[in-house]
């Protein structure tokens, strides 16, 4: 069998091109097959299921029930709590982007221990989310955790109960998600900052630009595609977020940290209501789509390529 990468014996370039194409298909086949079997087909199947009452363990097939799952969903208090919390977990995204940017600018200049600090800020990104979640659980432990120990030593006699209270659990989550997002943003910004020409910066300085002007008038516009990328992927990731929240509270206490993915997960894998869970998942998808479209539409005003 002739190798794919040399022309055929007859020297026909088209034959060579064909083989090249075939080789391309062979290379992408594992991914395409995997994506089709594990993503595309289940996604399409769940699209069908959301209009049915299929309960996994019932032994009955699905029955078409139209939009009943959606009617049921909007009547449930947990849906509205999950929607509110899903929107809340998007808040850490811009905050982490801003902090990540500022740290990147700082580390991009010559400061002491640049490499150590870079690794320090990036550590949460390459650490398992569940391990991070457990560290935060210990940090926020109400009676013996270091954060409350510090607050008590600072004179606060009744510090928040963090993940243990329905009032403060979500605040704890937002802090955790913000800190967790900084490292990745910082690294991406650092890469973007390397691309800014030093001549441009020097020219701006010669023209009298101060540091704040450099940041706002030169750096920020030049890294705006990176900012857009970080925001769009950050928001998508936030809406889909599951592991860390589930590991700490499973959506509790009293459903106070329930987000869409946990709401869908419980319906699917606690109660086996696959039809209903599909409806929730597709609502989550629509939310992500809407947010992404809004950003796409908005980016024309502030992203400079």
């Amino acid at each position: 069998m002739p190798p794919f990468f040399i022309p055929g014996k007859d020297g026909d370039p088209m034959s060579w091109m064909k083989r090249q194409r075939m080789l391309g298909y062979v290379f992408i086949a594992p991914n395409v097959i995997g994506m089709t079997v594990f993503l595309l087909v289940p996604a399409l199947f769940s699209f069908y299921l959301m209009f049915t009452d299929w309960v996994f363990s019932s032994g009955r097939g699905p029955h078409f029930i139209g939009l009943d799952n959606f009617r049921r969903m909007v009547k449930e208090e947990l849906f509205w709590i999950s929607l509110k919390n899903t929107l809340l977990v998007m808040l850490p995204v811009p905050v982490a982007v801003i902090i990540g940017f500022l740290i990147a600018v700082m580390l991009n200049n010559r400061v002491y221990l640049t490499k150590t600090l870079r690794a320090f800020f990036f550590a949460p990104y390459f650490t398992s989310g569940i391990a991070i979640a457990f560290v935060w659980m210990v940090l926020f432990q109400p009676s013996e955790g270091p954060i409350n120990a510090f607050l008590r030593s600072a004179g606060i006699t009744d510090p928040p109960r963090w993940f243990s209270s329905p009032d403060t659990a979500m605040i704890g989550m937002l802090i955790m998600l913000t800190v967790g997002g900084i490292g990745y943003n910082m690294i991406i910004y650092l890469a973007a900052l390397q691309d800014i020409s030093t001549e441009l910066m020097e020219a701006a300085r010669i023209d009298g630009a101060k540091t704040r002007h450099l940041i706002s008038k030169v750096i920020l516009p030049l890294v705006s595609p990176t900012t857009f990328f970080l925001l769009i992927t950050g928001f998508v990731g936030a809406v889909k977020g599951f592991g860390m929240i589930y590991a700490i509270t499973q959506g509790g206490p009293a459903n106070s940290t329930s987000v869409f993915s946990i709401f869908a997960y419980k319906q699917a894998f606690h109660f086996y209501e696959m039809g209903y869970a599909s409806a929730i998942s597709w609502t989550m998808f629509l939310l992500i789509l809407l947010i992404s479209l809004l950003q796409w539409w908005g980016q024309k005003r502030w992203v400079h390529y």
Binding site: P42, I130, Y246, A247, F269
Partner: peptide, 30 residues
């Protein structure tokens, strides 16, 4: 046919768990 549907559906739902926010590896399986 009904049984085949169930088997196919279960396979798809299992695969679907991977879809669900990547929870399969991090969340509950632990």
């Amino acid at each position: 046919t009904k049984k085949s549907f169930h088997v196919a559906a279960i396979a798809l739902c299992t695969a679907g768990t991977l879809l669900l926010a990547g929870c399969g590896s991090n969340g509950n399986s632990g």
